[in-house]
Design a protein around this nucleic acid. Structure first.
Lengths: 114, 114
DNA sequence: TCGATACATCGACAATAATCGATATGACTT
DNA sequence: AAGTCATATCGATTATTGTCGATGTATCGA
């Protein structure tokens, strides 16, 4: 399935894509982590909180069941945007500011010269 | 279904979420537009190209069928990240740099004080 | 040790999204 | 007018994802 059936007749190909498949997939994974409104709210809550927040403090504001919140937290941690810290029976989460900066820089790269 | 069944017993609620549902959904839509590796490649191609690019020049590098490329372009235009310009029978696309800057600013808001 | 609490995992289900072939639309050429 | 080319739309299919109830695991308190 290479596509490109008979459609691109008189078309001159541009320069080869600058991003590798792996780079594109990694970037997409990062953006996809923020592609859900509930996860955006979670990140916003953590960004506006001076202290780490536990899951039980997120269930109410989000209006989601506890397993669903756990699911979103896992996605955000796997994306590298959040850090998880166990305190007794509570799981506290905080923003990984380094990852957020890296994400912002990624967009700058995309919008400027690379 | 308000969630919060019996689970959050001794939990003190934090401050109310700062983002409205509409804000969170709009932000998520923007990120979701970049949550696909092919769309990341498209944006990268447009960012590295000094001139607008037509769809027939994207089919080859992406390895996708023409309707699939059109589908991705539509998503990116709807997200406000791309601008579409008709030239004869060709459709040329270019980055909306303003939208990209706005996206970068959004992340800064999220990572800093808001 | 026993019960309660906080969270994770599992299994299922529904909604969304990516993909493509077929076809329609619109523009240029002859 | 007819044919060709670039793109959009449609319909169907498959894969992914968000959601929740039920259950498992670990920690704390009595």
């Amino acid at each position: 399935m290479t596509g490109a059936t008979t459609a691109m007749a008189g078309c001159v190909p541009l320069a080869a894509p600058a991003l590798s498949n792996e780079e594109a997939e990694a970037t997409a994974r990062l953006f996809a982590a923020l592609g859900d409104p509930h996860r955006v709210k979670i990140v916003n809550l953590l960004a506006t909180s001076p202290e780490p927040v536990c899951i039980c403090n997120l269930i109410g504001p989000l209006g989601l069941a506890q397993p669903t919140v756990s699911h979103h937290m896992k996605k955000l941690v796997e994306a590298g945007l959040l850090e998880r810290e166990q305190r007794g029976k509570w799981a506290f989460f905080s923003l990984n500011h380094e990852a957020v900066s890296k994400l912002a820089g990624l967009i700058d790269l995309e919008g400027k010269s690379r």
